[in-house]
């Protein structure tokens, strides 16, 4: 199941968050058949996380935060199913994808699949929050960012809830 909430984070909020992430620094991840992207070294943002948890609770059911990750993707970056299969919690859970980007690229969608058929996409929509029910068999990949994104950057926050 997918619920997409638009305009949850304003342009200013997103810009402030990106500045905070840049200040904390980024770690590059490069394992060719799994992923090529960066994660921020920043910690939790308690006020934001509480707000997002409330949104998730209203969309689904009472949940608790289990994990989070700040992500940055540029041209040439990707994340494949193989990485998701190793990284994801094995049990069913809820995932929040929060788009912190400055602008839409028209690319960079997240693709959810059962390993064969594509089931749905999460578009790269700045300010949006996608709430996804993830049963164990639902896998995700982040499409490769090709030259069409030019010098744009995609920033995302991913929350794992259960």
């Amino acid at each position: 199941m997918l619920a997409l909430h638009r305009d949850v984070l304003s342009t200013d909020e997103r810009a402030q968050l990106r500045a905070t992430l840049d200040a904390a620094g980024w770690s590059a991840h490069d394992l060719a058949d799994r992923l090529h992207l960066a994660t921020a070294n920043a910690g939790a943002d308690d006020a934001l996380f509480a707000r997002l948890l409330d949104l998730a609770n209203r969309t689904t059911r009472p949940l608790r935060l289990r994990a989070f990750q700040w992500l940055r993707l540029r041209r040439g970056d990707y994340q494949l199913l193989k990485h998701d299969a190793r990284e994801r919690p094995p049990a069913a859970h809820v995932e929040l994808i929060v788009d912190l980007s400055a602008a839409a690229t028209g690319e960079a969608e997240l693709v959810y699949t059962d390993g064969g058929a594509t089931l749905f996409y999460v578009p790269q929509l700045p300010g949006s929050v996608a709430v996804i029910e993830r049963p164990p068999a639902l896998l995700r990949y982040q499409r490769y960012l090709c030259l069409r994104v030019a010098d744009a950057e995609v920033h995302r926050l991913r929350l794992t809830l259960a």
């Binding site: 060719a32 058949d33 990707y78 494949l80 490769y144 090709c146 030259l147 069409r148």
Partner: peptide, 10 residues
């Protein structure tokens, strides 16, 4: 064409 690719795999 421009923008086409094949990512690392076996």
């Amino acid at each position: 064409l421009a923008g086409s690719y094949l990512l690392p795999h076996t």
